[in-house]
């Protein structure tokens, strides 16, 4: 896929930042407002899907290399497990909210202990993995078309 016209390219390169900002907001404020790691991660992935549709797959591959995306995916999963194991070490129970005494003041951005950290990990993981799936699906479609010709 070569990409679309210059109007689509210009508008999507502006809108991309707004979508990324909205995704980051949904992830960071997941413990205060509706949303959370999963929805925010999907929004982050959709911003790059928009770029992929407008500019073509090669541009996105240069902008965000696939090995980096795999590493981000693994980093998110590892961070989530790490938070759980730190809960076991410091709190005594797997997934214990060990930061709750320190940052337990409700209705602040820094509140709810480990919940915002878990949200960030889940958002990173979901965004990276959904982007990987969509990218490999689009490559697969292109490959099968080439084979048929």
């Amino acid at each position: 896929m070569k990409g679309m016209t210059i109007i689509v390219k210009t508008i999507s390169s502006w809108v991309k930042m707004l979508i990324v900002l909205f995704g980051i907001y949904i992830i960071l404020f997941g413990h205060l407002t509706p949303g959370g790691g999963f929805a925010g991660g999907v929004i982050l992935a959709s911003s790059y899907v928009l770029l992929m549709l407008a500019f073509g797959g090669e541009f996105v591959k240069k902008d965000l290399p696939l090995p980096l995306v795999s590493k981000l995916d693994c980093l998110g999963a590892f961070a989530f497990i790490l938070i759980a194991i730190l809960g076991l070490v410091f709190g005594g129970v797997f997934f214990a909210n060990f930061l709750f005494e320190k940052y337990g003041q409700p209705l602040n951005l820094l509140s709810a202990g480990t919940i915002p950290l878990s949200n960030i990990a889940i958002g990173l993981k979901v965004g990276a993995s959904l982007f990987l799936v969509i990218f490999s699906l689009s490559i697969c479609c292109k490959g099968s078309q080439l084979d048929r010709k």
């Binding site: 205060l32 959370g36 409700p106 209705l107 509140s111």
Partner: peptide, 15 residues
């Protein structure tokens, strides 16, 4: 009071 998260859905799924 137990988790400190104002969004109860997040406090259920992550705590």
């Amino acid at each position: 009071d137990k988790t400190g998260a104002a969004n109860l859905v997040t406090s259920v799924i992550l705590d």
